[in-house]
């Protein structure tokens, strides 16, 4: 025996019911997909950060340990900069100090000098005071500018949360475009065991006219101390 809906109600009612089912299913499919898109976006929501790769970087004017103020636009001959947010007190930064110096030795002559910026509130860490920055820069004979971000506005614009944090920017006319954000390399503890030189690879890509392959990486570091 076969039971059909039409056994109980007439054809017009069946059509009406079918129409309602159709509308309901269309509405639910739309709602579910909207929900899924929303949930997906929520999961993939990036933390509130500063510049993204491809963004134009605003020039800054920060005081260096030499006493002079430094801006990216000062040097008309550069192809870009390796900007490293670093400091005196952080063991991670200390472990990278030699490698940051080596980056400048290698790339300054190729058009990508290092600019080091200390983002920390010096009242939180005595070691990060301007005087102590001067002492370190002098005793280690830094070949690059070591700048203090006194208002911490530059660090916020870059989205820096920890030291060390490296960025590579490329000059395009009068503009500077973000090319790389992340770690210096893949091994903080042992320079001899490094296999991926993220910053060097990024600069190498730019110098050979290619897009940067690995344009963002993540690493550990010391949390930036913000002024309250």
């Amino acid at each position: 025996m076969k039971i059909c809906l039409s056994d109980f109600v007439d054809n017009k009612t069946v059509r009406n019911i079918m129409k309602k089912i159709y509308i309901l299913s269309v509405v639910s499919v739309v709602l579910i997909s909207l929900g899924a898109i929303f949930a997906f976006q929520k999961i993939n929501m990036a933390p509130p950060t500063g510049y993204a790769v491809g963004d134009e970087v605003q020039d800054f004017r920060l005081k260096g340990t030499s006493g002079q103020f430094v801006s990216m636009a000062d040097n008309r001959n550069v192809k870009g900069y390796i900007i490293v947010f670093t400091c005196n007190h952080c063991p991670f930064s200390k472990a990278y100090e030699g490698r940051i110096m080596a980056l400048d030795r290698k790339y300054a002559s190729m058009g990508f000098p290092v600019l080091a910026i200390n983002p920390n509130d010096p009242s939180a860490y005595e070691e990060d005071s301007f005087e102590n920055m001067q002492l370190v820069a002098k005793s280690k004979n830094y070949s690059f500018a070591y700048l203090q971000d006194e208002t911490q506005e530059v660090s916020k614009a870059f989205g820096v949360t920890r030291t060390p944090s490296a960025f590579v920017v490329k000059r395009e006319g009068n503009r500077f475009i973000m090319q790389y954000i992340g770690a210096i390399d893949d091994n903080v503890q042992d320079p001899n065991s490094v296999t991926k030189r993220y910053v060097e690879d990024a600069v190498g890509n730019i110098l050979s006219g290619k897009p940067v392959i690995m344009s963002t990486t993540r690493s550990l570091g010391c949390a930036v101390k913000w002024k309250s």
Binding site: I43, N44, M45, A46, P47, T49, T161, R162, G182, A183, D186, N187, V188, Q189, D190, S193, K196, Y198, T217, R218, S219, L220, G221, A223
Partner: peptide, 20 residues
């Protein structure tokens, strides 16, 4: 682990790598 880039994101997509 030596390279944070291999695992930080796998703990949480929003983690920048800053501790705590």
């Amino acid at each position: 682990e030596s390279d944070g880039n291999d695992w930080i994101e796998r703990i949480d997509k929003t983690w920048s790598g800053t501790i705590p």
